[in-house]
């Protein structure tokens, strides 16, 4: 549910074309994210979800368009944004705690006192429930635990916006459900906003305040739904079922017209 005044993240007129490709991946794309809002970018493989997320994260410069975070123009990666990748990407030579701490002491990150840094690390690890595994190496973590650790690595930076690229795609169904609950808890506890990329409609229905459906041709928005239901939504099956059908038929129509 949305709260707070203006959008925290705004993108306007974003275009992107990879070298050597005939069609652009994104064309004149507009996007906005409110404070404490969870928006899902939903769509089939190859529509440019990851590309859009990389542009929003400042990891990829768009050919044109502007991105603003809290009104401030963004041209490079920004400490108020943290991106969580599809694979946990933990560093195998560091234990979990050091992985979570990774990057906090980098020169271009906001300066923290040693004590503050440790507090953040502790809080992030506690938030994802991995207190018992601080000293473990990544090879000693299950897939779900590794994904939690990667999330904690983002949280330690106290981002205002979490960018999540299919973070639960490689997990089994039960672990994925746990991670979805965890994501909701994190967003609520830390009052962050989040952009979640997924191609799992049910995941989108369970966690989002708003769903943006991409489909048809790359970077093409074909529908948008605001879901004003309280979370968690495990019991709201009938309302969500109707939405689900709606999204699926929109997707199918878009296919037919291309």
């Amino acid at each position: 549910m949305t709260a707070g005044p203006g959008p925290i993240l705004e993108a306007h007129g974003i275009s992107l074309r990879y070298p050597g490709q005939s069609a652009p991946v994104l064309k004149d794309f507009d996007f906005s994210l409110d404070k404490s809002e969870v928006v899902t970018l939903l769509g089939p493989s190859g529509v440019g979800k990851s590309s859009l997320l990389r542009v929003l994260a400042g990891l990829q410069a768009p050919a044109s368009g502007t991105i603003r975070i809290d009104g401030e123009a963004l041209s490079d990666v920004h400490p108020r944004l943290a991106m969580n990748f599809q694979n946990p990407g933990l560093l195998p030579w560091l234990d979990l705690e050091k992985n979570v701490a990774f990057g906090l002491d980098f020169a271009r990150q906001p300066k923290l006192s040693r004590e503050e840094r440790q507090n953040r690390i502790d809080a992030a690890i506690a938030e994802v429930g991995l207190d018992h595994a601080r000293r473990r190496r990544p090879s000693e973590l299950s897939g779900g635990m590794a994904q939690r650790a990667a999330l904690a690595r983002c949280l330690a930076r106290k981002p205002e916006v979490l960018l999540l690229d299919e973070p639960f795609g490689a997990l089994d169904e039960i672990t994925r459900a746990e991670m979805q609950d965890l994501l909701l808890k994190v967003v609520r506890d830390l009052e962050t906003s989040a952009v979640l990329v997924t191609h799992d409609i049910d995941e989108a229905l369970l966690v989002s305040d708003r769903i943006i459906l991409l489909g048809g041709s790359p970077g093409h928005e074909i529908g948008q739904w605001t879901i004003d239901l309280p979370k968690p939504r495990h019991d709201a099956v009938s309302e969500l079922g109707r939405l689900r059908i709606d999204i699926l038929s929109t997707l199918r129509n878009a296919r037919l017209h291309h």
Partner: peptide, 22 residues
């Protein structure tokens, strides 16, 4: 792993930090 390099990019790592830490 290319993702480690993307990680260091997303942390605005300097060249030296990327070299020495990754």
């Amino acid at each position: 792993d290319p993702q480690w390099l993307l990680l260091s990019r997303s942390l605005a790592a300097t060249r030296w930090e990327t070299l020495s830490r990754i």
